[in-house]
Design a protein around this nucleic acid. Structure first.
Lengths: 196, 196
DNA sequence: GTCTATAGAGAGATAGAC
DNA sequence: GTCTATCTCTCTATAGAC
């Protein structure tokens, strides 16, 4: 994927990734052919191999980029010294805001794990686990201060993430609710669910 | 799929469905070949076509059966005249219990929607919506009696279902928690989340 | 960097013997 | 009802011209 002089690398490269993201999310990795991706980009299938060594790398790069951005964006705005309720609010707002406009990436990150080769799978799983641990640490801190009360720390962590990620199942741009309203709905649900 | 005299229909038929369910869940519909299914059943690929007209029907039948069982099982045990909190408890217990041991079916029902032909997709979506409406009715009744308080009825419905279905993301048989403990954890979360 | 052409493998589905 | 054999199509990936 290195750029070469006097080429269209810097235009075609991103287009290949966008086309792959869109088509993988819509039809699934296994159901999409390199020819389909090439057609959406506007080149022949063979030309794609100037930008990716193979189809699997295309998938892995999309997932890796998504989870990397998720972690970076969270860590860049989180304040670990704030009180647990404030940290929980931040997590909820961050998760909703980040996921709402990335339906394709989220879909791929959750649905195409089984199409990753073992080594790639392990790397992606480690990143996902790291993100889950961010929330678990917040909940644990809140239990310690008496702000929160949960029956089981790990299951509650998974449940809250599943609840929040569910926003991508129904949200469509231009719908009945805007970001602020959706954040409020989910904030209320999560705050109450873990309240002491 | 009609049975024929003196054959192995009644043995092979279910085995075909089981093999398809297992393989579709593990590798994805598009990534699984009819030859793989045949190999798991122990027959040659051509023999599968005695039990299904094509691969698509195999997928649709699995989804349709799953959602049909889900609705039937719920309606067979629900008591619409009970107070809303009791109805909510029943929904949670039913959903957790039904989904926990059906990881394969749930995975397929959520992941392979995009591989359904349009007509089949519409039928499956209608059944899913009908199930969601069961929970929405309970929440609405509870808001009416003052037992529950939610910011948005529809979003809360989707959020609770996403939260509960998330159990299939982490639950593995023989793990740290048994059914009763898991039910309690989720019951507490949901009760608190929608409490007045 | 993109093209055409193609190698080599594997797909879904069918035909006809048994 | 299952088999073998095969039709026809499509796939990923590569080679070599431009």
């Amino acid at each position: 994927m290195a750029r070469k002089r006097g080429s269209h690398s810097d235009i075609t490269g991103p287009k290949v990734r966008e086309a792959a993201r869109h088509l993988f999310a819509r039809h699934g990795y296994a159901a999409v052919s390199m020819r389909q991706i090439a057609a959406e980009v506007g080149v022949q299938a063979g030309a794609l191999y100037n930008y990716t060594p193979d189809k699997q790398s295309l998938l892995f790069d999309l997932m890796e980029e998504h989870l990397s951005e998720l972690l970076t964006a969270f860590d860049g705005t989180a304040d670990p010294s704030a009180p647990p309720p404030a940290r929980l609010d931040h997590f909820v707002r961050h998760h909703i805001g980040f996921h709402m406009d990335r339906a394709d990436q989220v879909f791929i990150a959750y649905m195409e794990l089984r199409n990753l080769e073992p080594g790639n799978f392990a790397r992606v799983e480690a990143m996902r686990r790291a993100y889950e641990d961010r929330l678990e640490a917040i909940l644990q801190a809140g239990v310690g201060t008496g702000d929160f009360s949960v029956t089981d720390l790990r299951v509650t962590t998974m449940a809250v993430i599943a609840l929040l990620t569910g926003v991508t199942n129904w949200y469509r741009k231009g719908g009945r609710l805007d970001l602020a309203e959706i954040e409020e709905i989910y904030l209320n649900l999560v705050r109450k669910a873990v309240a002491a």
